[in-house]
Nucleic acid binder design. Sequence first.
DNA 1: CCCTAATGGGCCAGCAGCAGTCCTTTGAGC
DNA 2: GCTCAAAGGACTGCTGCTGGCCCATTAGGG
Lengths: 243, 243
Amino acid sequence: MSVHRGPHAAEAVFRPVRPRNAFEETVERLLQAIRLGVVAPGERLPAERDLAARLAVSRVTLRDAIRAVADAGYVESRRGRYGGTFVADDLPASPRPRRRAPLPGADIEDVLTLRRVLETGAAQAAAARSLSPSDRQHLRVRLTDVAGVAAGEEAEYRRLDSRLHLAIAEVTASPSLTSAVADVRTKVNELLDAIPLLAVNIGHSNDQHHTVVEAILSGDAQTARVAMAEHLEGTEALLRGFL
Amino acid sequence: MSVHRGPHAAEAVFRPVRPRNAFEETVERLLQAIRLGVVAPGERLPAERDLAARLAVSRVTLRDAIRAVADAGYVESRRGRYGGTFVADDLPASPRPRRRAPLPGADIEDVLTLRRVLETGAAQAAAARSLSPSDRQHLRVRLTDVAGVAAGEEAEYRRLDSRLHLAIAEVTASPSLTSAVADVRTKVNELLDAIPLLAVNIGHSNDQHHTVVEAILSGDAQTARVAMAEHLEGTEALLRGFL
DNA sequence: CCCTAATGGGCCAGCAGCAGTCCTTTGAGC
DNA sequence: GCTCAAAGGACTGCTGCTGGCCCATTAGGG
């Protein structure tokens, strides 16, 4: 049975344990936090001892990772009390498409399928819960944030858009669903970085965001799912254009 | 902001890198392959050198893991050409509920939420694709397998049930979705192992399986999703009974 | 009957990562 | 302006894991 035809259960279960080494994975996490807007420009990362404990990584490894990310211009460390590691106010641009890897189509479909499942599911699950006032507030704030981005600010839009989508996952109160959405979102962003810049229709996207959040806040699970599905189709079409 | 109120984005991104050590994760994978029916009783695991490469783990670590799993009675190794490591014909019973950990309700809801999203999404995605003949055949075989389990064979049923659900994920052609379903299924099975034995209504479950597979084969995505959702409610109610 | 290929079994040197400890810097508060 | 707590910076010895190599066992083919 070849790898591309027929079932893949063995591939799914016997996939690599620990895909990268600790240093590389730690770097990825830091970049993920910055790119998804979990820690905004100007904000401080958790203290090294705290963060190392959360990531279950030694402080040495974390510091190596922080140095790598600092060398790339994403963060800056300050010593002393009330010091810390702070996210740069203006982030480095993502590496432009080098076109070295021709973006295997199978991988794109894989990621898009997973994203559709996770994000439409998250929207539905969020709408099906009875949200706390702070959850509702959180959603509204993130919606407003992304709606306030000026046209042309692609990178900024990407970050706040991710942050809103992540917020939707958060209010499902399922940590593992939230983590899964964060991961798949990171992968989609990497794909988007690899294709030539094509301005997304931000206005249309914001309308869709509004519809999704409204449906979630009013507890309309079916509408939330469908609106999210429509919203995702934009990026899907964009990426499929580069198979 | 406390851990249980408000958003969890930081927790999602700053969760542990490499949650267990390589040995433990490898043991988990082997058990997962056996418990989910990816390698059936009597069948052979991939050769050590091959498997170590797939898992991206050293052969020493893999062998330690295999020994642990063999000591527990799940597999048996035979040397020589055409030898290998074979899954035991009759598997050890899962450890009975020791009730030491009182099954935190939040964790249960977390896993159930993720499962609902992934499995209903997988059913829908599977139905939305145009399946190859071998995919269709695969689904039918797995459906027949689980339908043929005699009443009372709880462990056997669990394994073949998992195998069918995994097959549905497989035919979405999304490896990462398949892996995610395998993982969440493993977690659900662990939860089920932790509660006292309650015979599931196997007949009813089989009817639901039939409905789901039929919908997938006929390309009816909406029905597939809804039928899967109804099917999952059985276990959900069961597990929620032990909060 | 022997050879060979494929498999599990075992050993060892080297390195990545860890836990622990101490040093250095810096700002708030008394 | 001194003190001290909280943060980053640095070193060190230990352990888990790796990668490479060789051995032992077994069945099939000539």
